[in-house]
């Protein structure tokens, strides 16, 4: 996201972009880490269920650990919420809300497409784990495009 918003940022916006980038990085790292290799992040985020399967963890523990994946998502929502509350520019607030809506729309569309492909080809794909990444990226790109349209 920071790649698309480098210039013309207020300190508040810069701080928010950095926090969201950190969240995005956490989800990306958690999603794409190769299971089987010892890594604390792997133990702490989405792919944990795979690690749990390896060590034969109980179902309850696996579910509890899987719930950890909620943390970055809630964190991102809190960051955006705090930003919207603090942003003094009402027009930019409106653009951010529209960008988030586009992010949700792209994510849902991606889920629908992947869902059809999974059923058609009977091949599983961990789309749910990529939802947060896709939404953050789509929101960032949408914001940039929306802002550009009002240049």
């Amino acid at each position: 996201m920071a790649l698309f918003c480098k210039a013309q940022l207020t300190p508040l916006q810069r701080r928010t972009v950095l926090l969201l980038s950190a969240t995005l990085l956490l989800t990306v790292v958690g999603t794409f880490l190769v299971p089987g290799k010892p890594n604390p992040l792997l133990e702490a985020y989405p792919s944990l269920w795979r690690a749990a399967a390896v060590v034969h963890a109980s179902a309850g523990l696996t579910v509890a650990v899987a719930l950890l994946s909620v943390i970055p998502v809630l964190w991102a929502v809190a960051i955006v919420g705090r930003y919207l509350k603090s942003e003094p520019d009402e027009f930019i607030r409106m653009l951010v809300i529209r960008a988030v809506l586009w992010g949700v729309a792209v994510t849902m569309a991606g889920d629908a497409i992947v869902g059809v492909l999974m059923v058609t080809y009977k091949a599983p794909f961990p789309m749910a784990m990529l939802n947060a990444d896709l939404m953050f990226a789509a929101t960032g790109i949408s914001f940039r495009i929306l802002r550009w349209s009002y240049r």
């Binding site: 003094p88 520019d89 027009f91 409106m94 009002y150 240049r151």
Partner: peptide, 16 residues
């Protein structure tokens, strides 16, 4: 105004 230039443009052109 303490807003972005895009905000002024949007208000001025009647898009916001």
């Amino acid at each position: 105004l303490g807003v972005s230039r895009q905000s002024v443009n949007a208000v001025e052109t009647g898009r916001f």
